[in-house]
């Protein structure tokens, strides 16, 4: 099967930095189609969110109330935090499947350090350190040993969950001191505390990606790693930092989850990676790399969470909800792509 699929044929290399600013990538990579951008993915998602709000508020009188909207933000957070990290990872054309398992691992570390007699703040520090280490290990194997991110994090997806199992022997920990529950159950002006944390982290990641040199490097690495290396970008360092930071976010997500559910479980966060990836790609990030934004991801998280909330309130069964979620996901992207590809005046 040798003669087909020449990988060596490289695309004409453009100036690296202009590529990053342009954010190219409508349609299949490299296909020169006559496409002009009319609306950004963010604008389209915003429009979609409006439609969603209208439809759901017609379907349930309980949906469009201040209480419900604020209350629902609680459920954005754990997956939202992971999605922030995954946004950066996916922009570099990487993937991190281990985030959900890292949540389980970090949570169990917090729980068992605390059970072992450590004061809770120290236990929390320990849990965060382990999750950071988990992220760092992913990045280290990916950058130093040259193994593709998908395989590395598939391995650690299993392994980190395993660590949580070994340490806990599957026994959950609960009965934490009351103050700790503030993080996941408390409110400030009726706004759940964890939502404020999420917003703060989102702003931080947004500023990093859109305003800092590091952020620009993230896009460069995703767009054209070869060119990035030739122009002196330390690709390994950038990747290592991103995976490590994603680990940190997983630790934060674990804290919020333990606090909200008052329990550290070895199976906490199972399947979160898929939910987070869904939000990120709905938000316009491309798994081929180079594309994605915090605004998009944030909107993706909100669109998906409100959809689930609204369907529940409208009395739809979970099974119908699953069917509809898929259809809405396709519709959202399809309508967006259709409008984006539309010529300017036609």
């Amino acid at each position: 099967m040798g003669e087909s699929g020449e990988e060596g044929l490289k695309m004409v290399e453009k100036d690296v930095l202009t590529q990053a600013v342009e954010k190219p990538g409508d349609g299949p990579p490299g296909l020169a189609l006559p496409v002009r951008r009319v609306l950004s993915r963010e604008m389209i998602l915003l429009g979609f969110l409006l439609v969603e709000l209208i439809v759901l508020s017609i379907l349930s009188p309980h949906f469009l109330t201040l209480y419900n909207l604020l209350n629902t933000t609680k459920y954005f957070v754990e997956i939202g935090l992971l999605a922030l990290g995954l946004t950066m990872v996916i922009i570099t054309a990487g993937i991190d499947l281990s985030v959900g398992s890292n949540v389980g691992m970090a949570g169990i570390i917090v729980g068992y350090l605390w059970l072992a007699g450590l004061p809770l703040p120290l236990a929390i520090l320990g849990g965060i350190m382990v999750s950071v280490l988990g992220g760092f290990f992913n990045g280290w194997v990916i950058t130093r040993l040259g193994i593709p991110p998908l395989i590395v994090t598939l391995g650690t997806w299993t392994a980190y969950r395993g660590v949580a199992m070994v340490i806990s022997q599957a026994r959950p920990v609960s009965g934490f001191p009351e103050w700790f529950y503030y993080l996941g159950q408390g409110t400030i002006l009726n706004i759940p505390v964890q939502f404020l944390i999420f917003v703060a982290m989102a702003v931080v990641v947004h500023l990093i990606l859109s305003r800092s040199t590091f952020g620009r490097l993230v896009y460069v690495v995703g767009n054209n790693p070869v060119a990035a290396r030739f122009s002196g970008v330390n690709v390994r360092k950038v990747l290592l930092e991103i995976y490590t930071f994603t680990g940190f976010l997983a630790g934060l997500s674990a804290l919020v989850l333990i606090s909200r559910t008052a329990t550290a479980r070895a199976d906490a966060g199972v399947g979160y990676e898929m939910d987070a990836i869904t939000a990120v790609v709905l938000g316009g990030a491309s798994i081929a790399g180079g594309q994605g934004s915090v605004t998009g991801t944030g909107l993706g998280v909100v669109v998906l969470s409100l959809l689930r909330n609204g369907m529940d309130l409208a009395g739809m069964s979970q099974a119908s909800g699953a069917v509809l979620t898929g259809i809405v996901l396709v519709l959202a992207v399809l309508s967006g792509e259709w409008m984006r590809r539309r010529p300017l005046r036609g």
Partner: peptide, 13 residues
């Protein structure tokens, strides 16, 4: 069985 995840993960890597 508790070690299963760790062992499988290490073996894959």
């Amino acid at each position: 069985a508790f070690w299963q995840g760790v062992v499988v993960g290490i073996l894959i890597l």
